[in-house]
């Protein structure tokens, strides 16, 4: 082979020969090569195992719970008294607490989030975007515990100064703060959807003499509607699962009420209260933790599926 001629010019053997030599004792390398895909698959499987773990954990204990508490009375019961001799487990107070706080949050997050998205995507100059977007990112990065502190020590006292009947712990304040927390999420997901609308569509409408508002409202928003709605649904899912803000600022009253000036407990706050109280394993109280968590899990899962379905089913083809 022609390499041999070149080899003569050098004191060392040809590279190709060196490589051939090394190849012989490279069994370690080739073993590794065969093992790597398996190892990586094993690592990737951890996420699946996590999901299975969550499901198994929730299901086994929930089944135990429903052996002790009637399924029907749990989901229709308006009374929740988990402690004491005559414990009663009705989940409705927690459900109303969760849904009302979520509704308040979305009343804040949807309009402000959407308007922010429209401003950033359609109106803001490049310079304004460069300043405003990081601010939203900072808002999104603030830990929920900080928002909880803010709701409890600032927003509640502020609201109480002009809503006299407001209790020190109430669902209104954490609901509002939760809404603020979710604004960045709705804004950035909606903005992504609107930015994906091709400029040719805007130009077409603008060339007909439409104002920017008309273009936004009649062209861009309809074109991006699936992404926008998906962002709302994900926001709802986030609100349902949010824990610390409501735990701190809404107290632990288990009243079945629709009065937003009152203290209410959400599903998440119940889980924190009961598990933090170190409920003894095996008791109905302990099992109730999982039944509530299961309900919460199903709620958020359904929301996430809906969001995925919307954005997949109605994906715009430009």
């Amino acid at each position: 082979m022609q390499k041999s001629t070149r080899q003569d010019q050098h004191s060392r053997p040809a590279v190709s020969d060196l490589i051939a030599q090394k190849k012989k004792n490279r069994t370690v390398g080739s073993t590794l090569e065969k093992l790597v895909p398996g190892i990586l698959f094993g690592i990737a499987a951890v996420s699946i195992i996590t999901t299975v773990g969550i499901l198994l954990t929730l299901i086994t204990e929930t089944v135990l719970f429903f052996q002790e508490v009637n399924f029907f009375s749990f989901f229709t019961g308006t009374e929740l008294k988990p402690l004491g001799q005559n414990a009663v487990f009705g989940v409705l107070p927690l459900l109303t607490g969760t849904l009302i706080s979520t509704a308040i949050a979305m009343l804040v997050a949807i309009p402000i989030g959407l308007m922010t998205a429209i401003y950033l995507s359609e109106y803001a100059s490049e310079k304004a975007r460069r300043i405003l977007k990081p601010i939203l990112e900072i808002l999104a990065g603030i830990p929920t515990i900080v928002y909880g502190f803010f709701a409890f020590t600032f927003v509640t006292p502020l609201l109480r100064s002009f809503i006299p009947g407001l209790e020190p712990t109430n669902i209104l304040s954490p609901g509002l703060v939760m809404g603020i927390m979710i604004i960045p999420m709705v804004a950035s997901l909606s903005e992504d959807a609107m930015s994906a609308v091709p400029n040719s569509m805007r130009e077409g409408a603008l060339a007909l003499g439409s104002t920017k508002l008309e273009v936004t409202w009649k062209v861009v928003v309809p074109a991006a509607i699936s992404g926008i709605i998906a962002s709302f649904v994900l926001g709802i899912s986030r609100a349902i699962g949010e824990t610390m803000i409501v735990t701190i600022a809404s107290g632990s009253s288990k009243n079945f009420t629709f009065d937003i000036t009152q203290s209410m407990q959400t599903m998440t706050a119940y889980i924190v209260e009961v598990s933090g109280g170190e409920a003894a394993a095996g008791t109905t109280l302990y099992h109730s933790l999982y039944a509530v968590a299961m309900t919460l899990f199903v709620f958020t899962l359904v929301m996430n599926f809906i969001a995925q379905y919307i954005s997949r089913r109605f994906r715009e083809e430009y």
Binding site: V15, I19, K22
Partner: peptide, 15 residues
């Protein structure tokens, strides 16, 4: 050369 197992710095320099 490296991925094929040649690690000797002197040989690498030369290559």
């Amino acid at each position: 050369p490296k991925i094929h197992g040649i690690r000797d710095k002197k040989i690498l320099d030369e290559i």
